[in-house]
Nucleic acid binder design. Structure first.
Length: 422
RNA sequence: GCCGGGAUAGCCAAGUGGUACGGCGGCCGUCUCGAAAACGGCUACGCGCAAGCGUGCAGGGGUUCAAAUCCCUUUCCCGGCGCCA
């Protein structure tokens, strides 16, 4: 949600944003329904004022025993008129919200304008691409040869895009999570394991309507939705709260499984465990003061980069264009890891500043002094690890001539000093 | 799952049909060389340039001229019983 004052006072800024994102949106309709909404608030407030005055009069006259029959009639009329007006106002409010909740976020001026990922800009690169000197395999063959993943049985039991992890790959998955949590704890993030299902109100605060059918699983007969990332549960964590300014920023490391429908991804990354319905993830989530959020954004991407440097995975940082970026984000960096089996860089991290967009939807505010107005804070999120994708990167980058997988040094202690999977 | 008790502002908390009592904490001011104390104001949201007005007593519905208050319902919390990884 955007600041209604901005929409009212500077519609050109909104118009420019919609153009940059190539999004069709009924801005005139939004402005009109906002104006209508304000008018109705004034009208109903006036009628309520009258009602309050008459109610007071009745109670005073009753006290001294005066006749109230005529004034009672007036009260009746006012009341019924008011409930008519209230009903109308409710409808106006609804149609306003429907538009207000679907307008995308503003775009930072550094974001390249384009329709898809071809307009993304490479910001920097790290690491040398491995030179194997033998015929390499992709993660599907590597894991099959070592008996680490069973896709066929998962398809039988759950469907496509599911998997059974097996043996040392289970250990590696757990080690990555353990190492990732230790890594963020050292940087003074608070560790959070959130609910894996949340209600509709909370989910609507974090995402935009389209995402419900594209990514989110619904639990039947319950007001519950499976989280697509712990971001959803953590954004809603402080909803309807007023935080003391001195407690900001709040830096959280959320760890949870993630569930995604992947509707509309037919045919893409069909095989293996690169794009799946379920994976484990550690997420950085930061609540920050508005003036600090761009600094926090850079900090989060560098935390993620430091993590991948420690694992020795070559990567590049991309600045997403307006066409490749989510509607909730004002600026997004992706980290793409080198995947030798695909001979390509592939997305493993997405790091976004959402400004006050989520905070407005979820009513997450702060103030420094109790007699000052509250302000909406800024929310930011970034992957640290989505484990399945890192398993792919570790298998493909760490493969040896004899078909083993080298484990990065930082993970040895988490693997009980195991240095290779064979 | 059953029975009972609850949900009022950042926290505590009074209020059984007629303008939401107070306290704590916090902020600002007066006083002071400065501070403490004392005193005064402010301390949820909306509309409005403002004066001001309205909304808000867990959510939804109902009764009534009028609901924090009465009725129905949902959610959550506490206690007891039951079941259970």
């Amino acid at each position: 949600m955007l600041d209604p004052k901005l929409i009212k006072e500077s519609p050109q800024i909104i118009q420019d944003m919609l153009k940059a994102r190539s999004v069709e949106f009924d801005l005139a309709g939004l402005i009109e329904s906002d104006q209508k909404r304000r008018e109705f608030i004034t009208r109903t407030d006036e009628l309520r004022k009258k009602k309050n005055q008459v109610a007071l009069e009745i109670s005073q006259k009753k006290k001294i025993g005066e006749d109230i029959s005529s004034i009672l009639e007036e009260m009746k009329n006012t009341s019924s008129k008011l409930s008519e007006l209230e009903l109308e106002q409710e409808n106006i409010e609804k149609s306003y919200l429907k538009l207000a909740l679907t307008i995308p976020n503003l775009v930072h001026k550094s974001v390249p304008i384009g329709v898809d990922e071809n307009s993304n800009i490479e910001i920097r690169k790290w690491g040398d691409l491995p030179n194997f000197g033998f015929k390499i395999n992709d993660h599907i063959d590597i894991s099959k040869n070592l008996g680490l993943v069973d896709l066929e049985r998962a398809a039988k039991v759950a469907g496509s895009r599911f998997y059974y992890l097996k043996n040392d790959l289970v250990k590696l998955n757990q080690s990555l999570i353990h190492y990732g949590l230790d890594f963020l704890a050292k940087k003074e993030y608070s560790l959070i394991q959130p609910p894996y299902m949340i209600n509709r109100e909370s989910m609507e605060g974090a995402i935009i309507a389209d995402d419900f059918k594209e990514v989110i699983y619904k639990v039947e007969e319950e007001d519950l939705y499976m989280i697509g990332t712990s971001e959803h549960a953590m954004a809603a964590m402080h909803s309807k709260e007023i935080i003391e300014g001195k407690d900001l920023p709040l830096r959280y490391a959320g760890v949870s499984p993630c569930f995604r429908k992947e509707a509309g991804a037919h045919g893409r990354d069909q095989k293996g465990i690169f794009r799946v319905h379920q994976f484990d993830k550690i997420e950085q989530f930061v609540f920050s003061r508005p003036e600090d959020s761009w600094n926090e954004h850079e900090k989060m991407i560098s935390v993620a980069e430091e993590f991948y440097q420690s694992l020795g995975i070559p990567y590049r940082v991309m600045l997403l264009s307006t066409g490749d970026m989510g509607k909730v984000s004002a600026k997004t960096y992706d980290i793409e890891a080198w995947m030798p089996g695909q001979n390509a860089y592939r997305e493993i991290v997405s790091c976004s500043n959402c400004l006050d967009y989520q905070a407005r939807r979820l009513k997450i505010r702060f103030r420094d002094k109790t007699n000052e107005d509250t302000q909406y804070m800024h929310t930011l999120n970034s992957t640290l690890i989505a484990t399945t994708r890192i398993l792919v990167a570790l298998m493909e980058n760490g493969q040896t001539k004899d078909g083993h997988i080298k484990i990065p040094n930082v993970l040895h202690s988490y693997m009980g000093n195991q240095k290779e999977i064979y």
